[in-house]
Amino acid sequence: MKYRTLGKTGLDVSVIGLGTWQFGGEWGQDYTQLEVDDIFEKARETGINLIDTAECYGDHLSEEFIGRAIEKDRDQWVLATKFGHQFHGLYERTRHFKPEEVQQQLEDSLRSLRTDYIDLYQLHSGVGEEFDNDKLWTMLDKQVKEGKIRHIGLSIGKNDNIYQTNKSSEIGSEAIQVVYNRLDRTPEEEVFPSCEDQNLGVLARVPMASGYLSGKYKPGATFAENDVRHRHDQEETRRKLATVAELEKNEVPEGVPMAQWALAWCLKHPAVTCVIPGCKNPEQVESNAKAAELEMVKTNHPQATV
Rank of each mutant, 00 (worst) to 15 (best):
G278K: 13
T222R: 13
N300D: 03
V228W: 09
C274N: 06
A304T: 15
P219D: 15
L267Q: 04
A292P: 03
P187Q: 03
F192Q: 01
L267A: 04
A291P: 07
L267Y: 00
V297D: 06
V275F: 01
K298M: 07
A259R: 10
A245H: 11
F192D: 00
L263R: 08
V272A: 04
N300I: 07
K249P: 10
E293Y: 02
R239S: 10
W261M: 14
E236R: 15
D197Q: 01
Q284L: 10
C274E: 05
E295T: 06
E251V: 10
C195T: 01
L183A: 07
Y217M: 10
V285K: 05
V191G: 00
W261G: 14
E225K: 15
D184Q: 03
E189I: 01
P282D: 08
S214L: 09
R239L: 09
E189K: 02
L263N: 04
L294F: 03
P219M: 14
A204E: 02
H230P: 14
V244F: 11
G215T: 14
A204C: 04
E189C: 01
W265V: 05
F223V: 13
P257V: 13
R238Y: 14
N250W: 08
Q198R: 04
T299W: 06
P219A: 14
A292W: 01
P277L: 14
P282Y: 13
A271Q: 01
N250P: 06
S287M: 07
V252I: 05
L203Q: 03
D233M: 07
P253C: 09
L267F: 00
A262C: 08
T273V: 06
L247W: 08
M258A: 09
V202P: 01
E283T: 10
H301S: 06
S194V: 00
W265N: 04
L213Q: 13
N300K: 11
M208A: 14
R231Q: 13
A242D: 13
R205T: 02
P193I: 00
K216H: 15
S287V: 08
L183F: 02
T305D: 15
A245W: 06
E190F: 04
L267M: 05
I276E: 04
Q198V: 01
V228I: 12
Q198P: 03
T243V: 09
P219Y: 14
R205V: 00
R205F: 00
H269F: 08
V228A: 12
L203W: 03
G255A: 10
H230F: 15
T237R: 11
A245F: 05
C195A: 01
K218T: 10
A262W: 07
A259Q: 11
K290V: 06
E196R: 00
A224D: 13
P270N: 12
E254N: 09
C195K: 02
T305A: 12
S194I: 00
E189P: 02
Q234C: 10
Q234R: 15
P219V: 13
A291W: 03
A209V: 05
P187N: 04
E295K: 09
M258Y: 12
V272M: 04
K218M: 11
E235Q: 13
A291S: 11
H232I: 10
C266I: 04
